[in-house]
Amino acid sequence: MTKEQLFDAIGGAEENYIRDAGEEKRRKSPWAKWAALAACLVLVVGAVLALELSEKMPAQAGPAALEYNGVKYLQSGSERYSTVLSELPEGYSFAGTMMYGEQGERSFYTNPEESLWVYVYCTVYSNNSYQPPKMAYVRFVDARLRNAEMICYEGRLYIGMMTTNIWHSEEADVEQALYDALEAEFDLAFEGAAPEGFVCLGEVEYTGPDTIPNGALAGNIKAVVWVHPDRPELLLKETYSHTYKEPGKLEQHHEGFEVFALYTGPLA
């Protein structure tokens, strides 16, 4: 396949995605939180009306969603096979049905011991594009955990600054002041060697996608972690970064770090 064929195929992206990406998106200013608080007073008045209208609106774009016991679940963002199963995992039982896009009504299964995941029995497409679709159990994950990159170190939970929901939700999982301070000091990621005082802890014990890691040094991503003994508010994860030095010149590779901030969200 050529790069031109890939560029051409990306041109076939769904139109709602194109529209959303084409709209201006800017980071929230610190004032946004207070403005939102004030706006809430107005929104309460309109909430009842909006609720009635929402049933007439077309389905939202994005991953399939399910609400159960007051928790919003989204189809797992992980591309790993473990999120699509041919057999229902032990401990799960039928809990109800949901509307699953064009597939219509589908059954979902819950486990009282594992509230972070729900499985939906639905049609999935094979990894081999020449194989026919089949029915399987697809993992849905607590929306607050979906795509969150987390590391646990000495009982404290950290989340990748690139994956926090601080930009998109009022239910922030990192203290705004901490986020701002770390962003000012390091940005969300940076190139080069580790800053002075940071020491390498080694590789985390991998707990798998869509999990909340727990242990002396564990992560739901594979990572080599660095820590500063006097700074419990952050961790650094080794990574690679790319830059463009000048137009037309290919990328140059540098080793660098992604910043993980102390997690203070509801899943801690």
Partner: peptide, 13 residues
Amino acid sequence: WGMKETTVSMALH
């Protein structure tokens, strides 16, 4: 997005 270019490049990578 109010991000640094290196951060965007990394995310795209």
